[in-house]
Computed example of a mutant assay.
Amino acid sequence: MLFPTLETDRLKLIEITPIHTLSIFEILSLDEVTRYYGTDRFTSIEEARKIIEVFQKNFYEKRAMRWGIVLKENNKFIGTLGLNGLQLKNKKAEIGYEIHPSFWRKGYTSEAIKEVLRYSYQELKLNRIGAVVYLENEASSNLLQKLGFKKEGVLRDYLFQNNSYHTTSMFSLLKREWELPAAESLGTHAK
């Protein structure tokens, strides 16, 4: 199975390979990026190499997909976005993402997520996309809700990071909910 490259107006979503090691390290070594990531910040380039190997292994084992987010205008690698816990048989996955702070609040994350949702529902035929978000991460919670995700509840002490437990919110978006805005804009109902 070839890794799917996706495109939006401003972005290319590409396979992450060893040539992206330094970019991954530069992003995941930042406290402001990993604060709500679910893992401690990277302190060595070796951690970036290993996570890329994990991304590739998970894809070939059909357990996850992780895209690199690249700006079309200059080929700058600005973050990653992926489907974790991918279960094709059960038609579900969880979405996760991070972006370099220099590119926050420019709409790139939203643009990338919309394309991955389209791919997930139309190409992979998934029915449910979940998202686990730290309670304190209001920016991510607000973004997901703008994209139609519904808050389902709270997962107590769900993640362990920086030697402490963190409670998270659980969000989800079902395929029929994702289809609804398109149908409403056309004045019809999605089937």
Score class of each variant (00 low, 15 high):
115 E>C: 02
27 I>A: 02
16 I>M: 05
90 N>F: 03
164 S>P: 00
23 S>T: 00
60 Y>H: 14
191 K>V: 15
164 S>Q: 15
130 G>S: 09
44 S>M: 10
82 G>Q: 05
4 P>M: 05
149 F>L: 08
120 S>F: 15
9 D>S: 12
130 G>T: 06
174 L>I: 13
34 T>E: 09
189 H>L: 14
101 P>Q: 08
127 N>V: 01
72 K>P: 05
108 Y>S: 12
175 K>I: 14
117 L>Y: 00
88 L>I: 04
30 L>G: 09
163 N>L: 13
150 K>H: 04
162 N>Y: 05
105 R>Y: 14
88 L>Y: 07
162 N>V: 01
14 I>E: 08
52 I>K: 13
81 L>Q: 03
55 F>R: 01
97 Y>A: 09
171 F>M: 06
56 Q>I: 11
43 T>D: 09
107 G>Y: 02
105 R>I: 11
165 Y>N: 14
82 G>K: 07
7 E>P: 07
59 F>H: 01
164 S>C: 05
71 L>Y: 08
100 H>F: 12
9 D>E: 14
7 E>T: 11
43 T>R: 05
27 I>G: 01
47 E>N: 02
25 F>S: 12
83 L>K: 01
144 L>T: 08
34 T>P: 02
158 Y>P: 09
66 R>H: 11
105 R>H: 15
25 F>K: 07
3 F>A: 05
24 I>P: 06
140 S>L: 05
34 T>W: 13
106 K>Y: 11
141 S>E: 02
49 R>A: 12
127 N>T: 07
182 A>N: 10
71 L>V: 04
14 I>V: 13
100 H>P: 08
164 S>W: 11
83 L>V: 07
133 V>Y: 07
13 L>W: 01
49 R>C: 07
48 A>T: 00
56 Q>S: 09
83 L>G: 01
138 E>M: 04
50 K>T: 06
50 K>A: 14
178 W>T: 01
153 G>F: 09
115 E>A: 11
25 F>D: 04
117 L>W: 07
111 E>H: 09
